[in-house]
Design a protein around this nucleic acid. Structure first.
Lengths: 149, 149
DNA sequence: TTGTTTGCAAACCTTTTGCACGTTA
DNA sequence: TAACGTGCAAAAGGTTTGCAAACAA
């Protein structure tokens, strides 16, 4: 994917926003663009920092408002790893999904995916008669690097 | 299990605390007793409320300090459902483990377990070369009751 | 013009910390 | 007595909200 080009998610999100009567210029658009370039999760603070680095002086409140809206629309997933910070990541249109292994020592987040796990979860939710709009699995422990020392 | 009797977890926790040179009277003991009677997770605020209802005027700070200690000792697991509140539940001595389906409409939490899932996760963590001290899976969606309406 | 979006600052809430006072070994 | 535990109040984050100015249809 060439640098600067709009991603699938970016396009999907903008279309969905427009369809729902929302604009995606200024702050909101900047958040959409940035999220579109991510493959894993970012905190609101990281998003704000990143935007400032590239010259968009977006206020924290606008970042949170954009994330809230995108979350409501099912375009971003919210995940938490137990550090008291919420993290956000784009929900890919194709439905691919990944999970997170968190190192409790160094904080590193390792994303991973597993098709069998996804199928298993679908079945589980069905058994529970619980609809599943999203899900997230967090594995806590020590990453490869930290475990070695 | 008769009302008022000490649970397995209660006993285990008290033994572990004593072994580590900690006391379990007053506030800490009250938190241990209450947690021992839970099968699913409680927030710090819920714990404090519950204790006050039964006449133990335990300060919030003590609740958090007790939870922090128990968590460090691996006696309680900390889970978050994306509402910005941490929840805590006893880690059962036998190692049984459950996960949570959260209704994003009414907030109901449905615990569930699945041995195959646990085995699958062990294998996954192994593949990632990530040690696993704990894990939690959260399914978001609508519960049986809300989905019907 | 009219409704939406934005940034700032203040408010809010959960969680942590400092500190003086009890409590327990 | 000495170390530990507790409650209160204050502090420290992260997140949300009120509001007036800026913006877009």
């Amino acid at each position: 994917m060439p640098h600067g080009s709009a991603t699938d998610w970016d396009n999907t999100a903008r279309r969905a926003l427009k369809a729902a009567g929302h604009r995606a210029g200024g702050a909101r658009g900047a958040v959409v663009s940035l999220l579109g370039r991510q493959s894993c999760c970012l905190s609101a603070h990281e998003i704000s920092d990143e935007l400032h680095k590239s010259g968009s002086d977006v206020g924290m409140a606008s970042v949170y408002r954009a994330l809230e809206l995108l979350h409501e629309m099912g375009l971003v997933q919210r995940v938490e790893f137990g550090e008291g910070v919420a993290r956000f990541e784009p929900v890919t249109p194709g439905g691919e999904h990944h999970h997170h292994a968190v190192c409790d020592r160094c904080g590193r987040v390792t994303p991973f995916e597993d098709a069998r796990l996804e199928r298993h979860l679908d079945r589980l939710a069905g058994d529970l008669r619980h609809s599943m709009s999203g899900h997230d699995l967090v594995i806590h422990g020590e990453c490869r690097r930290c475990a070695r020392s």
